[in-house]
Computed example of a mutant assay.
Amino acid sequence: MPEPMTLEGPRLRLRPWRAEDRDPLAALNGDPEVMRHFPAPMTRAESDAWADRMEAHVAAHGWGFWVVEQRERPGLIGVVGLLTIPWEADFTPAVEIGWRIAPGFQRQGLAEEAARLSLKAGFGPVGLTEVVAFTVPGNAPSWLLMAKLGMRPTGTFEHPRLPEGHPLRTHLLYRLRRQDWFA
C-alpha cells in the first residue's frame, strides 16, 4: 500500500484521517446548511461509513479526500480531495475533485487553496490526465470555484444514485485536463 500523502499550502494542511476527526466530520456532514445541495444531512452512522470509505481510498491509493486543517491551528475544518468515482456514468471511470468546508471557514478562499493543492498532487505525483467535478445547478459557490480552478463545463448528467424525478438529480459536469492545468 502506498504511503498516504500530506499536502502543505500557505494556510492549510491536507492530511490523512485520524480517529479524532470523526466528531467534527459528523458535525460537518450533519449540518443542514453544509449539506443543502445533497439529498439530506448525514446521520452519525452515515458520516462514519463515509469516513470509512474515504480512509479506505487513501489507504489503497495514498491520496483521496484529505482532512483539511489550518496550519497554525490543527483540527478538521473540512474535507477536500480526489476520489475515484464508484458509480457508472458516461464519463466514468474518472477521478473527481470535491470539497466540504465548515461554515465558520467558508468564503475565505480555503476551499480554493485546498482544491489547488489537490489538483497539483493529482496532476503531479498521482499522474492523473483528467479530473472532473460536478454539482447541482443551484450550487453557485461550487461551480464558480470549478471555473476559478480552470475547469470547463461540459454539460449535464443525471446522477445515477438519485431516483428519477429527484430535484437534485440533474448535475453540471466540469472537466480539467492535465495539459490545461499546466498551461
Rank of each mutant, 00 (worst) to 15 (best):
P137F: 07
G62Y: 10
V126K: 04
E130I: 10
R116A: 11
W99K: 08
V132S: 01
G124S: 03
G124L: 03
G75I: 05
L117Q: 06
A89G: 12
V131W: 01
E130R: 14
A89S: 15
L119R: 00
P137I: 02
I77V: 13
I85H: 03
L83H: 15
A111G: 14
E72V: 05
L83G: 15
T92W: 00
W66I: 14
E113N: 10
D90Y: 03
F91Y: 11
A94W: 03
E96Y: 13
E69V: 05
A133V: 12
P93S: 05
Q70I: 00
A89Q: 09
E88Y: 01
L83P: 03
G109F: 00
V67W: 00
L119M: 06
L119F: 01
R71D: 03
Q70L: 15
A133P: 10
G127K: 01
S118D: 09
F123G: 08
W66A: 12
V95P: 02
F65E: 08
A59K: 15
P74M: 06
L117Y: 07
L119A: 05
F123N: 00
Q70F: 04
V126D: 02
V131Q: 09
R100L: 12
H57Q: 14
A121I: 00
W63A: 07
A60D: 15
A94V: 06
R71E: 03
Q70A: 07
G104L: 02
F91M: 03
P125N: 02
G109W: 00
R71Q: 06
E88M: 08
G81C: 14
I77S: 00
E72I: 05
G98M: 10
W66V: 14
K120T: 05
E113H: 01
V132L: 11
R71S: 06
T129H: 08
T92L: 00
G98W: 12
G62E: 13
E113D: 06
T129P: 13
G64N: 01
G124D: 00
V80K: 01
H61D: 14
F105N: 14
F91I: 04
E72F: 06
V95F: 00
Q108I: 11
T129G: 15
W63F: 14
H57Y: 07
A56Y: 13
Q106M: 14
T92C: 01
F65N: 11
G127L: 02
L119Y: 05
P93N: 04
L128E: 03
E72C: 09
T84Y: 15
Q70Y: 11
E113Y: 00
P125E: 13
V79G: 15
F134V: 11
K120D: 13
M54I: 12
A111C: 12
P103N: 09
